[in-house]
Design a protein around this nucleic acid. Structure first.
Lengths: 338, 338
DNA sequence: TTTATCCTCCAAAACGTTTTGGAACTGATT
DNA sequence: AATCAGTTCCAAAACGTTTTGGAGGATAAA
């Protein structure tokens, strides 16, 4: 592996000159510069980013820290699509991307700070972390710039990107109300997620706006899991046969809910309308296809990266961004027939 | 950020001693070691991997180089699941993972060697590259250890991981034959993928074994794309109404094929049996659910990482691994009724 | 007493860059 | 002739580690 010294020797100049020539400084004669460039090419020289980073104290590297990177994520593709967005934006801006994944076991070994400093990342995008995760405190205390995905907390070095979950949920529920549904239940996610609270707020707001009292027993916790949602839906529908429509805080839970209803002998969407949240791939292919609130996961990652690099480069701009959702009407929601 | 020097000063010892104490060398008194450890903790010291890598000439970093990391990949999740496997294995073995994605534009700017050397990766796992990609030549010429996914080429510094595609395809087609189908067509992927050739070979082998002549016009190119597969299937079924079963070289293409058949007014699986390849998430949820040959993408990534680290650590072991497939029977394949 | 052996520790070199603060020269201006 | 300005170059320091080769002292063996 050719070093800058090899180039310098062969070109008959000093190391300094090679460095300055290759980095486009003006205090080197154009002839010399050309000669150096040619020789660098010949020797197949490319500077060691390690050495450069060491002296410049800049690595131009950001980390995507995901808590619980597991294959189960294939089902909703949240992480993957965020990753694509981060990767594209980082690429455009000339940043490297390292993937850092943690789980509770790893967290006991290394603190957030250690993890980041060791891996020499300048900033971090955090995804998939629950609100009661001890890492969250560390992040807020740390001075490493960080963008949180779906956790609206802001500080000097911390910003966030999220979706307008309340609006989205409200749209979904109002859609069902407009179809004439009076008894609309909600399968929510677990409470360690901000989005659950927001989506619940949207559900409540839609009911309130339409003069329908909020019924606590109409909201169950599906933990963002398909199976849990299926179980909870079964219980729910048995306890409250009057329910004619379901708003699910995620499409995946909607899949579970649909399965539960089918197993109870219901015909969908005639006996039960369902609206989900996310617009995952499955939603378009399932039977009935699922009406849902689409959120742009790719953009979530892309915008997070933009914000992070702004932070890193000391630009004085907003440290948060809230994306809008889109309602997608499919087969699973129709007029109330009860 | 505390450096080793700060620790040394505070502990009243030399930098050398701190280094050796923290790295578990035996030539340091246990008392001193403890004291140093305590002080390191107090100062929140963690060694700079940059500096360490520079002097040790080891970065303990591997790269996952994916060609065409795009959000469309959500549909089959190939890349994501491979990534999960790579990430888990790398984590276990103490390697860092950096994600490198290229496209034709980037490839013109940087050679493979530059890309890898700059990013200081010791080895690379290559996924999603076509057999006619110019990068492939570079990889083979380069001396950077590399594991190819789904391209069976081996050299001193190159190994591969793949699935037994021929076997899998043969199983699929034999399944259809056993169901009494005589006219079985194949929607294959593009020819710039080794897996296409292998799966075609499996298709031919199954026919041959059962004394059925190979009919060239029964094999069309769906390019691994849902839409292309749909178009090609429409043409195919119109030209050959006798066809009663389809073997698709990917589940995604099977989705396209099924859509084509439905649009032509066929009832599935009664009028047409379909078997896919991959076992993507969608297959279990579509109507009819798709019989398919499952391949373990997670394991593909995991094993690739194992092989790569073996290569890096100079272990004398096999440089390739071929995984077996599993047949999954679902609703889309039934007895021939024609 | 001398020699050998351990046990602890350390100074200095090395890794491959960038940056700082001038040096050496040329040509133009006083 | 002396000064100045501009151009082109360079030696050395710095970044934060690990490793090498040995120093110094204590203890044991001869």
């Amino acid at each position: 592996m050719a070093t800058i010294r090899d180039v310098a020797k062969k070109a008959g100049v000093s190391v300094t000159t090679v460095s300055r020539a290759l980095n486009g400084y003006s205090d080197v004669n154009e002839k010399t510069r050309e000669k150096i460039k040619v020789i660098a090419q010949e020797l197949n020289y490319s500077p060691s980013l390690l050495a450069r980073s060491l002296v410049m104290k800049k690595t131009k590297t950001i980390g995507l820290l995901v808590s619980g990177l597991r294959i189960e994520g294939s089902k909703d593709n949240f992480t993957f699509e965020v990753l694509c967005g981060v990767n594209d934006c980082a690429g455009e801006l000339g940043y490297e991307l390292v993937l850092i994944s943690t789980d509770s076991k790893k967290q006991q070994e290394k603190t957030y700070n250690q993890l980041c400093k060791e891996r020499k990342v300048e900033g971090v995008i955090l995804q998939g972390i629950k609100t009661d995760d001890p890492y969250l405190d560390e992040v807020l205390k740390s001075d490493i710039p960080c963008i949180l995905i779906d956790i609206p907390i802001e500080s000097d070095s911390v910003g966030y990107v999220t979706t307008n979950n309340k609006d989205g949920a409200q749209t979904a529920v109002e859609h069902l109300l407009n179809l004439g549904h009076k008894h609309i239940a909600m399968i929510n996610g677990h409470s360690q997620a901000f989005v659950s609270r927001e989506r619940l707020a949207g559900y409540e707001a839609a009911l309130m706006k339409n003069g329908i009292p909020f019924n606590k027993s109409y909201v169950v916790n599906g933990a963002f899991l398909e199976d849990t949602a299926e179980r909870e839906t079964t219980k729910l529908l048995k306890a409250h046969p009057e329910i004619s429509a379901l708003f699910c805080a995620s499409d995946l839970m909607a899949m579970g809910a649909i399965r539960a209803a089918k197993k109870m002998g219901k015909t969908l969407p005639k006996d039960l309308s369902v609206v989900g949240f996310d617009n995952i791939i499955l939603s378009a292919y399932s039977t009935p296809s699922l009406s849902t609130i689409a959120q742009d996961r790719y953009k979530l990652g892309f915008e997070a990266t933009k914000l992070l690099t702004n932070l890193l480069e000391g630009k004085e701009v907003e440290k948060n961004k809230v994306l809008q959702t889109t309602f997608i009407k499919r087969e699973s929601s129709i007029e109330n027939h009860k």
